[in-house]
């Protein structure tokens, strides 16, 4: 049986301050009306609802918040921010939490990050995203080899997907590659996960 949460032990006020500073949001303004949860299109796949994430941040419950699946499944549609009666950009808070979790290598929903990397790898290589390349990389990374296989016949028939990547001309592709290279090097220098 779970013991009652010891509030005095829970409160990591440094975490609360950090989230507030990085997101630029006044977290104490949240009065828990639940509007963010009510409007969130992804709430049905969340382990913790948005208002609970906000509560967790207010209480400094770092582990519970950064290890939640919800911050990875947030669609960044910003419905929550639009309708928050206290002008909190809740989507910015969610994105901040995602960044913080990533940097500490806490990735509760690995496939989401794998998809992002698959996408970004094609951009790094060619300067532009390449859908088939993204899919192939994702299938390898996630070991979900049958992802969207049901769509393949139709997509191919309609020639929705290009078999060849679009490479940015005039050295553009390598310029983009350099952006990624510098980004990675800097992250390593700063001791965070790129």
């Amino acid at each position: 049986m779970k013991n009652a949460t010891d509030m005095s032990q829970r409160h990591d006020s440094g975490f609360t301050v950090e989230v507030g500073a990085q997101s630029g949001q006044k977290l104490s303004a949240c009065y828990q009306c639940g509007n963010c949860t009510a409007g969130c299109p992804a709430s049905f796949v969340y382990d913790r609802q948005v208002n609970q994430i906000m509560r967790g941040v207010q209480l400094g419950m770092k582990d519970e918040v950064l290890d939640s699946r919800a911050i990875w499944l947030c669609l960044s549609c910003s419905t929550c921010s639009l309708r928050c009666p206290n002008n909190i950009d809740v989507a910015a808070v969610m994105e901040t939490l995602r960044h913080m979790a990533r940097k500490e290598n806490r990735v509760a929903v690995g496939n989401v990050e794998k998809f992002w990397f698959s996408f970004l790898n094609t951009v790094r290589a060619f300067g532009r995203s390449w859908e088939i390349g993204t899919m192939a990389l994702y299938m390898m990374r996630s070991l979900r080899l049958f992802t969207d296989l049901d769509l393949a016949p139709e997509a191919l028939k309609k020639q929705k997907l290009g078999f060849k990547p679009h490479v940015v001309a005039q050295g553009g592709a390598s310029s983009v590659t350099r952006i990624f290279k510098r980004y990675k090097e800097r992250a390593e220098r700063e001791g965070v996960r790129p």
Binding site: S76, E95, F119, V123, G172
Partner: peptide, 26 residues
């Protein structure tokens, strides 16, 4: 515009705001 590149879409800003901004700034 000549030599444009991908804006980074959601994956870039979800990973890092500065990376996203670098791709867009170019």
């Amino acid at each position: 515009i000549p030599g444009w590149n991908c804006c980074g879409s959601t994956p870039a800003h979800a990973v890092d705001t500065e990376l996203s901004a670098a791709l867009c700034s170019r």
